[in-house]
Simulated scan of single mutants.
Amino acid sequence: MSKKVKILIGLIVIITTGYFGYNYIMTGGARDVQTEKSEYTTSATNVFTEFSNNSETATAKYLNKTVEISGKVTNVGENVITLDEKVSCQLQVAEKVAIGSQVNIKGRVTGYDDLLEELKLDQCLIVK
């Protein structure tokens, strides 16, 4: 094989590995939060206080974990619910929720946005 072919094959392997690695990290692998047991149950205010006081410690504790968070709905988007103006939850399935109602959300913590001071969750569902 020529040197150019070996380099091309190497590049294809690296790009393919990078693509699948990126997708795995961004989607959390093949997880089903619905069937997982919550590792932590807390309120939106309490979890926000933990991140405000020490975001590094709170990130180590909650990142990529399944949590159940209770709070008052302060904003409703197409597939996003915000609790206590502090926790943004990306819903798996759009649901009708009234602003001002008290709900429990189960989801996977994807990170804390220091700029917006908002905790982000994905794969969320409303616990009934």
Rank of each mutant, 00 (worst) to 15 (best):
residue 101 S to M: 08
residue 92 Q to Y: 13
residue 76 V to E: 02
residue 115 L to I: 13
residue 115 L to C: 11
residue 122 D to I: 00
residue 64 N to P: 07
residue 60 A to K: 15
residue 114 D to Q: 15
residue 97 V to C: 04
residue 55 S to H: 09
residue 36 E to Y: 02
residue 93 V to R: 12
residue 20 F to D: 13
residue 30 A to R: 15
residue 63 L to F: 07
residue 16 T to H: 09
residue 93 V to L: 12
residue 34 Q to S: 15
residue 106 K to N: 00
residue 33 V to I: 14
residue 58 A to S: 10
residue 25 I to D: 12
residue 112 Y to K: 01
residue 107 G to L: 09
residue 38 S to E: 04
residue 62 Y to V: 06
residue 85 E to G: 09
residue 70 S to D: 05
residue 107 G to F: 04
residue 98 A to V: 13
residue 18 G to N: 08
residue 76 V to M: 02
residue 128 K to E: 14
residue 41 T to C: 10
residue 75 N to G: 14
residue 95 E to H: 12
residue 83 L to A: 06
residue 84 D to K: 00
residue 71 G to H: 04
residue 70 S to L: 05
residue 78 E to Q: 10
residue 112 Y to D: 03
residue 119 L to Q: 03
residue 90 Q to W: 03
residue 51 F to T: 00
residue 75 N to W: 14
residue 29 G to L: 06
residue 22 Y to W: 10
residue 59 T to F: 02
residue 56 E to Q: 15
residue 18 G to E: 05
residue 79 N to F: 07
residue 49 T to G: 15
residue 72 K to D: 14
residue 51 F to S: 00
residue 77 G to Y: 01
residue 69 I to D: 04
residue 54 N to Y: 04
residue 59 T to Q: 06
residue 36 E to R: 01
residue 91 L to Q: 08
residue 111 G to P: 06
residue 48 F to W: 14
residue 66 T to E: 03
residue 107 G to V: 04
residue 93 V to H: 13
residue 106 K to E: 00
residue 37 K to D: 14
residue 36 E to K: 11
residue 116 L to V: 11
residue 97 V to F: 08
residue 111 G to K: 00
residue 47 V to Y: 00
residue 123 Q to S: 10
residue 64 N to C: 08
